[in-house]
Amino acid sequence: MQASSSTPSPWLARLAALATAILLWQVVVWSGWKPVWLLPSPLTVFLRLATLATEPAFYWAIFYTLVRAVSGYAMAVGIGVASALLMLRFRLLRTTVAGLLTGLQSMPSVIWFPLAILLFQLGEGAILFVVVLGAFPSIANGLLHSIDHIPPLWIRAGKMLGARGWSLVAHVYLPAAMPGFVGGLKQGWAFAWRSLMAGELLVIISDRPSIGTRLSFARELSDAPDLLAWMIVVLGIGMLVDGLLFSTIERRIRIKRGLFET
């Protein structure tokens, strides 16, 4: 309660950062570095965004993109968790595959597109493939590392109290690993979102005009306000998911377990 007076609330801080960024943008526009039809002012872009937001197509684009994001991410979580559990179960698998996983994690997901397009043509499959490949290594690694750092005492206590095999995994390993795992989930989401945006720019599916499609069209028509408006949408979704979903979950877990300094 007292701490809040010395440190500003996170929302206030975020708002201040946003205002600064917009101001910088405006300053660049004023400097005349680029003509305004290439680099429009913040006001022009926000007005365009407001106009876009009155059209149903705007929400459809967001909807198509979010459906892909959610389904790709869900698959990545499933595959990530399953592969981490397999690696924990079979040590040999871990010694051979763990390095590969970290390698995958560091690979820019755009690298996968040529292969994805070969395998799945220019369709949903190609995008999904890259989103899953981009996101699952972080999720698997996050879970592996957080399980490695569980205090052995909890495992011993769990065994002593009658948890064995799968029940030990479900009732001790997984909940004990949760704080670190949420970090992995969050990173996985960031990778999924990036891969998805790359995918939508490369693989245009014209009967489903998603955010990426709209960005591509805006560039082809040299419609700078439109382009920037859609970029703001991408930024906004990323921040919302992080701020509303992951940060909230992290906070809840930390409060519940008494991990906050008071």
Binding site: L153, W154, R156, A157, G158, L161, G162, A163, S167, H171, V172, P175, A176, M178, I253, K256, R257, G258
Partner: peptide, 21 residues
């Protein structure tokens, strides 16, 4: 060390061995 599970309430900690049974 008490080795209680921080993700469970006091009641659920005590109930842990009961639930496993």
């Amino acid at each position: 060390d008490p080795a209680l599970f921080p993700w469970l309430s006091v009641a659920d900690n005590i109930g842990f061995p009961l639930a496993r049974k």
